[in-house]
């Protein structure tokens, strides 16, 4: 119970919520506006995170340029996924997108000399002989921490610094995205979500609209990867399993697929679920070992997804009417 009232716990929850909220924002524009069911979203986060790690460690780039390259590469991957498979109908695309992300993960897993393979970014060969990655993204966190020192009179934690970076961005991205969703561009996309033929018969290049959405969503996936790599510093292939995509989906359907601002609340709920199954120590959680807690987390996420789809498919903030008209 103690952890529950500690600010440190809630700060961790918020940091995680910001990162996965941005991740989920990518799915929101893809599905909530364009009706695209992307189940390989984790691939974008993996590509961006790993690009940063490899460029910083192996090629000694500055973190900023590496982050930019990571996001661009995620966008590029989204374009590649779209150009190859976006003409497929919904369920086929969903399956293809999973395969796409799994190919990315297997490549990371089996290309030891670039990505560090199973050992993760710790094993990326560096010109200095050892991986000196963590200190580079830490520069940002330390900078924040130093600025906070006079205010809180103590050294700010890593998580707190992260919250102060990621939340303004999360807010900014949500604001931008909700602006974008009020344009006529988004209106055409909403039409394609229901029926391709109508917008096509009115002169709209449906494929172009879809591809653009997929790329924008992938950029958010890539941005989430940037924050992810700052927060955790070490990346390993098992951080980018298929299930991570469904973390994003859980946040999205909890908020309601068309409710972009609902992501704030849903992301915090996810952060809480994640943090609680990791740190909270009251009964009956205290009976579980750390790996058992990890299963519990997976189980709860599965449960939330199933319950939502059965009991409240429109999510916390969605309109029932939109679902009925579907």
């Amino acid at each position: 119970m103690e952890a529950f009232i500690q600010p440190g716990f809630w700060i961790f929850v918020l940091a995680l919520a910001g990162i996965y909220g941005i991740f989920s924002l990518g799915l929101q524009i893809q599905y909530g506006v364009g009706g695209i069911m992307n189940f390989g979203h984790v691939g974008m986060m993996a590509v961006s995170g790993y690009t940063i790690a490899v460029l910083v460690i192996k090629y000694e780039w500055s973190f900023w340029w590496a982050a930019l390259a990571g996001v661009i590469l995620a966008a590029f991957l989204g374009a590649l996924l779209g150009l190859t498979t976006l003409r497929l109908s919904g369920d086929y695309f969903a399956i293809a997108s999973i395969a796409f992300a799994e190919i990315v993960r297997y490549w990371i897993l089996n290309t030891d000399n670039v990505t560090g393979g199973t050992q993760g970014t710790l094993a990326i060969p560096s010109p200095n002989g050892f991986a000196s990655y963590t200190d580079k993204p830490d520069v940002i966190l330390t900078w924040i921490s130093d600025r906070l020192y006079p205010i809180i009179g103590d050294e700010a934690s890593r998580d707190l610094s992260m919250v102060l970076i990621v939340w303004p961005f999360f807010g900014l991205f949500i604001w931008l995205s909700s602006r974008l969703q009020k344009t006529s561009w988004a209106r055409v996309l909403r039409a394609t979500r229901e029926d391709d033929d109508v917008p096509r018969s009115l002169g709209k290049n449906v494929f172009r609209f879809r591809l653009q959405t997929l790329i924008i969503g992938s950029v958010f996936g890539g941005l989430a990867g940037v924050f992810w790599s700052v927060q955790f510093a070490l990346l390993a292939p098992e951080d980018f399993l298929r299930i991570v995509t469904f973390y994003g989906w859980m946040i999205l359907i909890l908020a309601g697929a068309t409710r972009v601002k609902g992501l704030f609340v849903a992301a915090i709920f996810f952060g809480f679920l994640y943090g609680a199954t990791r740190f909270l120590e009251f009964w009956p959680l205290s009976l579980l070992s750390s790996p058992e807690r990890a299963y519990l987390r997976v189980f709860l996420i599965g449960l939330v997804i199933v319950l939502l789809m059965v009991k409240r498919p429109q999510g916390l903030f969605g309109k029932r009417q939109e679902m009925i008209l579907e």
Partner: peptide
């Protein structure tokens, strides 16, 4: 136009036209 009139059900009537 389409047989059976395809409307985009989850857009408003005005939005259907403005699109």
């Amino acid at each position: 136009t389409f047989q059976g009139a395809k409307v985009i059900r989850r857009l408003t009537v005005a939005e259907n036209l403005m699109m």
